[in-house]
Design a protein around this nucleic acid. Sequence first.
DNA 1: TTGAAAGCGCTAACAC
DNA 2: GTGTTAGCGCTTTCAA
Lengths: 323, 323
Amino acid sequence: MKARLTEVAKAAGVSTATASRVLSGRGPASATARRRVAAAASELGYLPHAAGRALATGRGTRLAVVVNGRTEQVLEDPYVGRVVTAAAKVAAAREVGVSMHWLPLHAPAELARLAENPAIGGMVLLNPTESALRAAPKSVRGRLAAIGVGSRHVPSFDVDNGPATARLVAHLLGGGRRRVAMITGADWLPCTHRTVTAYRETVEAAGFPARVVPGDFTAARGACAATEILARWPDTDAVFALGDLAALGALGALQRTGVDVPGDVAVAGFDDLQFAALSSPALTTSTHPVETIATACATAVLDQRLGRPVTRYSSELVLRATA
Amino acid sequence: MKARLTEVAKAAGVSTATASRVLSGRGPASATARRRVAAAASELGYLPHAAGRALATGRGTRLAVVVNGRTEQVLEDPYVGRVVTAAAKVAAAREVGVSMHWLPLHAPAELARLAENPAIGGMVLLNPTESALRAAPKSVRGRLAAIGVGSRHVPSFDVDNGPATARLVAHLLGGGRRRVAMITGADWLPCTHRTVTAYRETVEAAGFPARVVPGDFTAARGACAATEILARWPDTDAVFALGDLAALGALGALQRTGVDVPGDVAVAGFDDLQFAALSSPALTTSTHPVETIATACATAVLDQRLGRPVTRYSSELVLRATA
DNA sequence: TTGAAAGCGCTAACAC
DNA sequence: GTGTTAGCGCTTTCAA
């Protein structure tokens, strides 16, 4: 049942060192040794003892998912749940666990404290701010990556939201919309800027005014923002919200005001959450391959393959009824 | 920075054994020793090395969240994400990580294999079937608990969905509905039976017929089920779906068929997902304190306080527009 | 109540 | 290529 390295080595007729080399994949070993050790291991159902390995290598037993945010509530965000789930799968395959940590916006140095924890073998930074990236100590380089913006020393895995925003806005314009307003994401999030810029450039290139209202990814704020938009610019004929939740909030607010969607005003979101397909009318949006991104990021960290500084994942337009 | 037990012991002027006893809280220690070790530890910012401790105690470095389900896709369910998030918080506070595992319905014995993994210090079984509970080996007793049904040896933490269902159905009847249909959850899930029974008893006690259609918690199935219900029993004036997703699917299907909700047919769900408040009309449902339940379950497992065999959490009716 | 010392299972120098 | 051996940091007998 609980075969240990010693037993495997004995069964294979080699020393524990050789068995270790073969099973961990580092260090030299003859073809014969490889074969015999592998056979013995699978015969005995050998599973490396994570704590023993961690203690010897100092590489830790956990992958930390560190989430930047204003309050600890960010950890409750379903988006975070999706990232953790994906990371946990990658981690489990490597016999490590996952832990979640809130990184307060105002205390980026907390990151360095986490990095000191010997149990943490790698870190995935979620939605980092520039200051969080700067706070990453040299000691964690090579075992840290970001989902969101990165830096010179922190590789980034992110959705290609600039071009996706441009495509979505172009679709609205192509459908005859002339006054497209945008509800942004939280202002502290670097990725918000990219999308706002893409939006601005697209509408202005077409000769139309940019109308930006701050959002924070919540439905409640999306609803308020939509109301504000109509009050400030009554001729608005399309609303693009960063985040489906905000878009759904805006959609509800518009409908309650008696505005016909998409007749009077088109609405589009971003992320393609499960519920985007369930609203009435169903929400037009752009995909966000969160699981793919998180899996790649966690894999890169755990396998220490942090090659490219930036890896972008494309977002696809999903045309439904609201726009 | 990285103070180890040796340093703490030295600073406190005691042996590592004494320092260990004080810091781990087990074993005797004089008041003086306690005080001095505690002072030294906090002074040096000591953080126990999880791998070292795990290796010595054999208690593992991870809390496994084991999810029963038909396919590995269950791990992608947002509900699982919520449980893992809550468990990860509890775990992080105790310097352990979390891992996720799919327990196939047809291979409950897989549970025993997981239990053999020395890295796994505790297990939270999510939505276990009776056979999964039976497959739990004696060796894991005391470090295993279930979210969902339990057994004699596996303590259960669950929402009180029987009474909640009865209350919800009673509300529908109280509002004048006479032909209440129910869309159930996945049939392999033990908790489905409890709710179906509660529904059945409530409508029958009021002298109305029970109309049960199978569901699987998905919106797509909820939509089909609603269509089936109308085809089979055209006089249905209320639909109760187990799971808001199914309810939202049903709501959409009814609306597309030209049925007025709640005018012609009332709709109610279960779980009070974030999106229940966002549909139009907004969904009437019953709360499901997933985070509270998961936190309690994970805490009980990690702190080995598995006292009560069953802990129930009450679900509250949330009245909105659909019923 | 305390300290010395023997491991827990593994990896990594180092010598062969 | 391979084996010997010394730890990684902690807990836990066991003697004192």
